[in-house]
């Protein structure tokens, strides 16, 4: 009998993935560089005037965040699938959705959290007025876990295909739309001094809902993909 407790298994899984990720730092850093570069393309394209830039800044940062989430998403389960760790994960004596939630948490730590930390720099480059900064950070903090969870669903569904890239974007981008609408609108509202509590609460609700249901979908998708 294997006597490992759920917590022990989850801890081992997170420790392993963090260790592997720290050996491949470029996978963490490259999406962040991508965000910075895309963000700096906009002043070049629409002109550096603060009136135009400041108005589109929130939208640009959020769209860039979605694209960055897509960029790293394929890798979420790819290595695990190729080296056989994914099928071992199914066989661990722990409910698969719990492990899926752990994978989502790790993905957020390695891609969502760095993005939140990078956001002030992007806001600075895009001349986002200071009134919008705190709301931008708050929406990113609430929104990036949703991105990680949805990304995990798409990645788990396409992991066995080997060429998921474009397909994954097709699956995921429509699902990102509500997040984009509420988050960008909240920042815009903050800029004109409107109350943003409503949107923030909505985003928080969306996050709770996504983090509750997504692990089930990810678990189902992993079982389908590994066969």
């Amino acid at each position: 009998m294997i006597k490992a407790s759920t917590w022990q298994v989850v801890k081992t899984l997170m420790r392993r993935d963090l260790k592997v990720a720290l050996r491949r730092r470029s996978d963490i850093i490259n999406p962040l560089l991508f965000v910075l570069m895309v963000v700096s393309l906009f002043p070049l394209a629409v002109g550096p005037g603060p009136d135009v830039l400041g108005r589109i800044a929130a939208g640009v940062i959020w769209v860039t965040a979605l694209l960055a989430a897509l960029l790293g998403s394929e890798r979420l389960f790819r290595d695990d699938y190729l080296d056989g760790s994914l099928e071992q994960m199914i066989l661990l004596p722990v409910p698969l959705p719990v492990l899926a939630l752990a994978k989502i948490a790790i993905h957020w730590l390695l891609s969502g959290l760095p993005l939140v930390i990078l956001a002030p720099l992007a806001a600075l480059l895009l001349k986002l007025p200071v009134e919008g900064w705190s709301t931008l950070l708050l929406t990113l903090l609430l929104g990036t876990p949703i991105l990680s969870a949805l990304t995990a669903i798409g990645a788990a569904l396409t992991v066995s295909l080997g060429r998921g890239g474009a397909l994954l974007s097709l699956l995921l981008l429509p699902l990102f739309i509500p997040l984009l609408i509420f988050a960008a609108a909240a920042v815009e509202g903050a800029l004109v001094g409107a109350p943003v509590v409503g949107q923030v609460v909505l985003l928080a609700g969306l996050m709770v809902l996504t983090l509750t249901l997504a692990p089930l979908a990810v678990a189902g998708a992993i079982r389908v993909s590994v066969n």
């Binding site: 669903i153 699902l175 509500p178 249901l213």
Partner: peptide
């Protein structure tokens, strides 16, 4: 699985739009 994920999202998308 994708259709089920979608059907949870359809009302959310609808409302947000």
């Amino acid at each position: 699985i994708l259709a089920l994920v979608g059907v949870v999202n359809v009302p959310i998308i609808h409302y947000s739009v």
